Deep mutational scan, measured.
Amino acid sequence: MIFPGATVRVTNVDDTYYRFEGLVQRVSDGKAAVLFENGNWDKLVTFRLSELEAVK
């Protein structure tokens, strides 16, 4: 189960963010908004829950 605050990895091989890890900001309607941070940039991207896996 994916909840806000969880760290997730993108599993969709066709996505630009494949294998990126980010922090879930919100979850609704089968989608999750994931925040990616890297140095001087932040990006908030929405994914279907089926495209994400929780990082242990």
Rank of each mutant, 00 (worst) to 15 (best):
residue 1 M to P: 12
residue 1 M to W: 11
residue 1 M to G: 13
residue 1 M to T: 11
residue 1 M to D: 13
residue 1 M to R: 12
residue 1 M to Y: 11
residue 2 I to Q: 01
residue 2 I to A: 02
residue 2 I to N: 01
residue 2 I to W: 04
residue 2 I to V: 06
residue 2 I to P: 03
residue 3 F to A: 10
residue 3 F to H: 10
residue 3 F to E: 09
residue 3 F to G: 08
residue 3 F to Y: 12
residue 3 F to D: 04
residue 3 F to S: 08
residue 4 P to H: 05
residue 4 P to E: 08
residue 4 P to Q: 07
residue 4 P to V: 13
residue 4 P to A: 09
residue 4 P to R: 08
residue 4 P to N: 05
residue 4 P to F: 06
residue 4 P to D: 04
residue 5 G to K: 03
residue 5 G to I: 02
residue 5 G to P: 01
residue 5 G to T: 03
residue 5 G to Y: 04
residue 6 A to H: 06
residue 6 A to Y: 08
residue 6 A to D: 13
residue 6 A to N: 07
residue 6 A to V: 14
residue 6 A to G: 06
residue 6 A to P: 01
residue 7 T to V: 13
residue 7 T to Y: 13
residue 7 T to N: 06
residue 7 T to L: 14
residue 7 T to S: 07
residue 8 V to R: 00
residue 8 V to H: 01
residue 8 V to L: 01
residue 8 V to G: 00
residue 8 V to E: 00
residue 8 V to A: 03
residue 9 R to C: 07
residue 9 R to I: 09
residue 9 R to P: 01
residue 9 R to N: 02
residue 9 R to Y: 06
residue 10 V to G: 01
residue 10 V to I: 07
residue 10 V to S: 02
residue 10 V to M: 02
residue 10 V to F: 01
residue 10 V to D: 01
residue 10 V to L: 02
residue 10 V to Q: 01
residue 10 V to H: 01
residue 11 T to V: 13
residue 11 T to G: 04
residue 11 T to N: 07
residue 11 T to I: 14
residue 11 T to S: 07
residue 11 T to Q: 05
residue 12 N to D: 06
residue 12 N to R: 10
residue 12 N to H: 05
residue 12 N to V: 07
residue 12 N to C: 06
residue 12 N to T: 08
residue 12 N to I: 06
residue 13 V to E: 10
residue 13 V to Y: 07
residue 13 V to K: 13
residue 14 D to F: 13
residue 14 D to W: 11
residue 14 D to Y: 12
residue 14 D to L: 13
residue 14 D to T: 11
residue 14 D to I: 08
residue 15 D to L: 08
residue 15 D to R: 08
residue 15 D to W: 04
residue 15 D to Y: 05
residue 15 D to S: 15
residue 15 D to E: 05
residue 15 D to M: 05
residue 15 D to T: 12
residue 16 T to L: 13
residue 16 T to C: 12
residue 16 T to P: 15
residue 16 T to Q: 14
residue 16 T to G: 07
residue 16 T to R: 14
residue 16 T to I: 14
residue 17 Y to L: 08
residue 17 Y to W: 13
residue 17 Y to C: 07
residue 17 Y to I: 02
residue 17 Y to N: 04
residue 18 Y to L: 02
residue 18 Y to S: 03
residue 19 R to G: 15
residue 19 R to M: 15
residue 19 R to A: 10
residue 19 R to Q: 13
residue 19 R to T: 09
residue 19 R to D: 10
residue 20 F to P: 00
residue 20 F to T: 05
residue 21 E to G: 03
residue 21 E to Y: 11
residue 21 E to L: 13
residue 21 E to A: 07
residue 21 E to T: 13
residue 21 E to R: 09
residue 22 G to T: 01
residue 22 G to A: 03
residue 22 G to W: 04
residue 22 G to P: 00
residue 22 G to H: 01
residue 22 G to S: 01
residue 22 G to F: 03
residue 23 L to H: 07
residue 23 L to K: 13
residue 23 L to T: 14
residue 23 L to C: 09
residue 23 L to A: 06
residue 23 L to D: 03
residue 23 L to G: 02
residue 23 L to V: 15
residue 24 V to Q: 00
residue 24 V to T: 02
residue 24 V to K: 00
residue 24 V to F: 02
residue 25 Q to C: 14
residue 25 Q to L: 15
residue 25 Q to P: 00
residue 25 Q to N: 04
residue 25 Q to F: 11
residue 25 Q to T: 13
residue 26 R to G: 09
residue 26 R to F: 14
residue 26 R to S: 15
residue 26 R to W: 15
residue 26 R to D: 11
residue 26 R to T: 14
residue 26 R to L: 11
residue 26 R to A: 13
residue 27 V to Q: 02
residue 27 V to S: 02
residue 27 V to T: 04
residue 27 V to H: 01
residue 27 V to W: 02
residue 27 V to L: 07
residue 28 S to M: 12
residue 28 S to W: 15
residue 28 S to A: 12
residue 28 S to K: 10
residue 28 S to E: 13
residue 28 S to P: 01
residue 28 S to L: 10
residue 28 S to G: 10
residue 28 S to N: 09
residue 28 S to R: 10
residue 29 D to Y: 08
residue 29 D to N: 12
residue 29 D to V: 05
residue 29 D to W: 07
residue 29 D to I: 05
residue 29 D to K: 08
residue 29 D to A: 09
residue 29 D to F: 09
residue 30 G to Y: 05
residue 30 G to I: 03
residue 30 G to T: 05
residue 30 G to V: 04
residue 30 G to Q: 05
residue 31 K to N: 08
residue 31 K to I: 12
residue 31 K to G: 06
residue 31 K to R: 11
residue 31 K to C: 12
residue 32 A to H: 01
residue 32 A to Y: 05
residue 32 A to I: 06
residue 32 A to F: 03
residue 32 A to V: 10
residue 33 A to I: 15
residue 33 A to P: 00
residue 33 A to M: 14
residue 33 A to Y: 15
residue 33 A to W: 15
residue 33 A to F: 14
residue 34 V to C: 03
residue 34 V to A: 00
residue 34 V to Y: 01
residue 34 V to L: 03
residue 34 V to K: 00
residue 34 V to Q: 01
residue 34 V to S: 03
residue 34 V to D: 00
residue 34 V to R: 00
residue 35 L to T: 05
residue 35 L to G: 03
residue 35 L to P: 00
residue 35 L to K: 08
residue 35 L to R: 09
residue 35 L to C: 08
residue 36 F to M: 06
residue 36 F to G: 01
residue 36 F to Y: 02
residue 36 F to K: 00
residue 36 F to S: 00
residue 37 E to P: 10
residue 37 E to H: 14
residue 37 E to K: 15
residue 37 E to M: 14
residue 37 E to A: 14
residue 38 N to K: 11
residue 38 N to P: 08
residue 38 N to H: 13
residue 39 G to H: 09
residue 39 G to Q: 09
residue 39 G to K: 08
residue 39 G to N: 09
residue 39 G to L: 09
residue 39 G to C: 11
residue 39 G to R: 08
residue 40 N to S: 12
residue 40 N to T: 12
residue 40 N to F: 10
residue 40 N to M: 11
residue 40 N to C: 13
residue 40 N to Y: 09
residue 40 N to G: 12
residue 40 N to P: 12
residue 40 N to W: 08
residue 40 N to H: 11
residue 41 W to S: 10
residue 41 W to A: 10
residue 41 W to I: 12
residue 41 W to C: 15
residue 41 W to T: 11
residue 41 W to L: 10
residue 41 W to E: 12
residue 41 W to Y: 10
residue 41 W to V: 11
residue 42 D to A: 15
residue 42 D to C: 15
residue 42 D to Y: 15
residue 42 D to N: 15
residue 42 D to T: 15
residue 42 D to R: 15
residue 42 D to I: 15
residue 42 D to K: 15
residue 43 K to I: 14
residue 43 K to Q: 11
residue 43 K to H: 10
residue 43 K to Y: 10
residue 43 K to C: 14
residue 43 K to W: 11
residue 43 K to L: 14
residue 43 K to T: 12
residue 44 L to C: 11
residue 44 L to A: 06
residue 44 L to W: 07
residue 44 L to V: 13
residue 44 L to I: 12
residue 44 L to E: 10
residue 45 V to P: 06
residue 45 V to E: 06
residue 45 V to K: 08
residue 45 V to R: 11
residue 45 V to D: 02
residue 45 V to H: 06
residue 46 T to M: 12
residue 46 T to Y: 14
residue 46 T to C: 14
residue 46 T to I: 14
residue 46 T to V: 13
residue 46 T to F: 13
residue 46 T to S: 09
residue 46 T to L: 12
residue 46 T to H: 09
residue 47 F to P: 01
residue 47 F to Q: 01
residue 47 F to S: 02
residue 47 F to C: 04
residue 47 F to T: 01
residue 47 F to E: 00
residue 47 F to K: 03
residue 48 R to S: 12
residue 48 R to W: 15
residue 48 R to E: 13
residue 48 R to P: 12
residue 48 R to I: 08
residue 48 R to H: 14
residue 49 L to G: 02
residue 49 L to R: 02
residue 49 L to Q: 04
residue 49 L to K: 03
residue 49 L to F: 09
residue 49 L to V: 09
residue 50 S to L: 06
residue 50 S to P: 05
residue 50 S to I: 08
residue 50 S to W: 13
residue 50 S to M: 07
residue 51 E to W: 06
residue 51 E to Y: 06
residue 51 E to S: 07
residue 52 L to E: 01
residue 52 L to V: 05
residue 52 L to Q: 00
residue 53 E to K: 07
residue 53 E to S: 06
residue 53 E to F: 06
residue 53 E to A: 07
residue 53 E to C: 08
residue 53 E to Y: 06
residue 53 E to G: 04
residue 54 A to W: 12
residue 54 A to C: 11
residue 54 A to K: 07
residue 54 A to P: 12
residue 54 A to Y: 13
residue 54 A to Q: 09
residue 54 A to R: 09
residue 55 V to S: 05
residue 55 V to Q: 04
residue 55 V to Y: 06
residue 55 V to W: 05
residue 55 V to R: 04
residue 55 V to F: 07
residue 55 V to N: 03
residue 55 V to L: 08
residue 55 V to T: 07
residue 56 K to A: 13
residue 56 K to V: 14
residue 56 K to D: 13
residue 56 K to H: 12
residue 56 K to W: 12
residue 56 K to T: 13
residue 56 K to I: 13
residue 56 K to M: 13
residue 56 K to Y: 14
